[in-house]
Amino acid sequence: MKRLILALALLCALPANFLFCAVPAWAVEPDEMLRDPALEARAREVSKGLRCVICQNETIDESHAEIAHDMRILVRERVTAGDSNQQILDYMHSRYGDYVLLQPRFTTATFILWLAPLVILMLGGLAVASRLKRGGHEVAPLTPEEEAALASFNDSGDKAP
């Protein structure tokens, strides 16, 4: 196992293989970054929770779309102005709705999304429990006739080619 991990690590270390490993990718340009590392870190964190509104499934942190760039700038302005992470997410949510949040909120529109895995897990659990309660599948032992038939198959001389 250790060798396997080592091999994988070496594979990742090869630059030509970067496609196969999860390399962090972001689109933040140096001129966008805030001077204060703590604020910049918060801006990055908020950006990772916001979905680029024209690229379906990228965060604004990863997206090179122009609107994502402008949203990153806005996030940094708000961070600098002293807004909390939650306030920034709330603002974006108030403009673009659920779409913009990569972690959808628990609302009447999204409760199925959130609860479905739990419900499916519970149904599966119930199915397993009821099966265990019934004591599983008991197979009756072979009758003497069946034993005889089985023996005749074995003695019939059919050989696998």
């Binding site: 509104v53 024209i54 609107i67 402008d70 949203m71 806005l74 974006m92 403009r95």
Partner: peptide, 13 residues
């Protein structure tokens, strides 16, 4: 030029 109003109106395209 910097999407201030556009983001305010929730414009994507």
């Amino acid at each position: 030029p910097h999407s201030k109003a556009a983001i305010g109106f929730g414009v994507a395209l």
